Simulated scan of single mutants.
Amino acid sequence: MSSSHNNGYDVVVDVDDEGDLGHTDLTDLEFHQSTYSTTDPSAGKAGRSSARSPRTAGGPSNSTSTPSGKHHLFTLSFYAQYFDVDTSTVLHRCRSALIPRTNFLDIIDGNPDLYGPIWITTSVVLMLFLASTLAQYFARFGEEGDGGGKRYTYDFTLLSGAAGMMYGYTFIVPAALWVVLRWWGVESANLLELACLYGYANLVWLPVAVASVSPITILNWVFVGVGLASSGLFLFRNLYPVVSATDHRTAKILLIVVVALHAGLALAIKILFFAHGSPVGTKDPNMTHPVEPPKSDGRLF
């Protein structure tokens, strides 16, 4: 018995032992459904192509790896992928930042997000403004008893000062560090990973701002010092393997600069927002009316 394929069917023909086909008519033919399938060559190529570039589960795809991704750089859809995170992921990264047990860059696993850093930094800005306002109010109340009988006015210069300082530090410093690392040929951390790292490092300033409402100066210094030590150690621990890819002298200089800038941030938070008569605000926090400009005596200088 022999068979042949014909348009998706098996044609079965009886053949005797001598190889003679004998008399064959249509009644001798049996048709069976064939299991043979024709594969489109183009479909196979598409399948192999997709298998070579799988998307990491739970993280944004790297659209810049394809030529078409470059056109998406100036669209909202390109940045929207870095905000596509769920609450559990953000909370897990927040816990890992406050209680670091492993390298934070290993936790984000090449899938940084911008939702957490922007949300945390914005919360820190608002908390610094509110806590500084309360701290100055309590300081004035303690000096004048009933506050001098004047209504307290909010100083929104503190809000703009906090926004400029926190957003500038969170995104400009990582960008500068990334440029230096790229100059030395280090590619172990990209720009968004560094921004994500610095953004989650700001989380410690939320409890520090709440605790610094206390009018006791020494306690404010202690709270800010604890925040500096915690977040500074977090940054040092995660950046050390990255900057170590450069030579020893460059790595040492970069780590010193990172720690010095972070210490400067902590010092600015203490002096500008949790000291009576903050330089960020007005010179007289008790003032309820704007200061009238001095009368001119006709001289230019």
Rank of each mutant, 00 (worst) to 15 (best):
G225A: 06
V280S: 05
S244L: 08
L29K: 06
S296V: 14
N238F: 01
P67W: 12
Y79I: 08
V12N: 10
G59C: 07
S63P: 14
F129E: 00
W205E: 06
G185N: 09
V180P: 09
N111F: 10
S123G: 12
T282S: 15
P207R: 02
T153F: 14
P215A: 09
M165R: 12
H23C: 03
S50A: 11
D16P: 05
R299L: 03
N238K: 12
T133W: 08
T157F: 09
H92N: 13
V258R: 04
I218G: 11
F171G: 03
D146E: 14
N220K: 08
G185A: 06
F78H: 09
I271K: 06
R299I: 05
P293C: 02
M165Q: 10
F74H: 15
P112G: 02
D40G: 11
L235T: 00
M166K: 04
G142M: 15
M287Q: 15
G142F: 13
Q136W: 09
F223R: 00
T64V: 15
G232Y: 04
G232S: 09
Y167Q: 04
C196I: 06
S50L: 15
Y240W: 15
V124N: 01
I108G: 00
T102I: 11
G232C: 03
S160Y: 12
D146H: 13
T153Q: 14
P112M: 01
N111P: 03
L159Y: 08
D16N: 13
S88C: 02
G225P: 02
N62Q: 09
W184F: 11
G145R: 08
T24P: 10
F234K: 00
W184M: 07
G22P: 04
T102V: 12
I218S: 13
Y200A: 03
G298R: 01
Q136L: 10
L73I: 08
H5Y: 09
M127R: 04
T282H: 15
L265E: 01
V186I: 11
M127C: 07
D155V: 05
F31K: 01
M287E: 12
S68R: 09
G264F: 03
V204D: 01
G232A: 04
A266R: 01
L158H: 04
P117F: 11
I269A: 03
G225D: 03
V222E: 04
L254P: 00
L159S: 02
F83C: 05
D17E: 14
R151S: 12
G148K: 11
N238T: 03
G116N: 11
V258F: 05
L197T: 01
G58N: 12
V173E: 07
K295V: 09
F129P: 02
G58D: 06
T56P: 07
L255W: 01
L159W: 00
Y200E: 02
Y79E: 12
K295A: 07
P41E: 14
D297M: 14
L177S: 01
Q81S: 03
Y9W: 08
A57M: 02
N6P: 05
H5F: 13
A51Y: 14
W178S: 14
